[in-house]
Design a protein around this nucleic acid. Sequence first.
DNA 1: ATGTCCGCACATTGCGGA
Length: 261
Amino acid sequence: MRIATFNINGVNTRLANLLDWLKAEAPDIACLQELKATARQFPEVAIREAGYDAVWEGEHRWNGVAILSRVGAPVVTRRSLPGDPADRQSRYLEAAVQGVLVGCLYLPNGNPRPGPKFDYKLAWMERLIAHAAGLVTVDAPVVLCGDYNVVPTEADIYDSRSWKANALLQPESRAGFARLLDQGWTDALRERFPEQPPWTFWQYLREAWARDAGLRIDHLLLNPRAAARLKDAGVDAAVRGRERASDHAPAWIELADTDPA
DNA sequence: ATGTCCGCACATTGCGGA
């Protein structure tokens, strides 16, 4: 089973890119972030015609997350992250598909820093850590994937000099991600490429794609039951080079159908 | 500080968010 995560940066703006990728790579499950569409604007019909059932959580202009599946309709288990009923931003969606629990998340960017946006990012991370503590021990495969907006280590960015003040690299952001891993989650791309993990994001500015000036901020975290099934992981980087591409590329894992004996 | 991209609104440019 292949599970992918893709910050689409506008599901309607990039619909042709999305459909091309779904057709070419045919992930069994695809988590999308930054839909930038209300629930009504979500392109349900085009996605169904591409062979996918979908569940989604929309929002006007910003954020928005979806889970697509071509191996059975996702059964929603959560539509928001617990811990703050006043938080109306659509950044978390969780569903069961084919015996796998999938959490699709869009962690706040947090810029500019310092300020309320960075505070919100850290508060959101705390809520994620609290919720993930309950998921890591689930006696079934759990995959927490999405745009974490965190560059975990210096190996996860082309050159950090011009990013020093950015919320994606701050010690607090990295500490939060490390605390998640300490719960027992496996960072799949890091596991697959321990020396040099691939980038998942190239900003639009300064010809970052052409220079391969990338960052790794999209992550697939696996609980022990999912990690035991990990066969492969990668990034569909070529997607970033297409016309009118998202600034992110899809990242994916391949899980064995059953636990190893 | 800058750069790029996009959709929306006090709309035919400016702005926020990334």
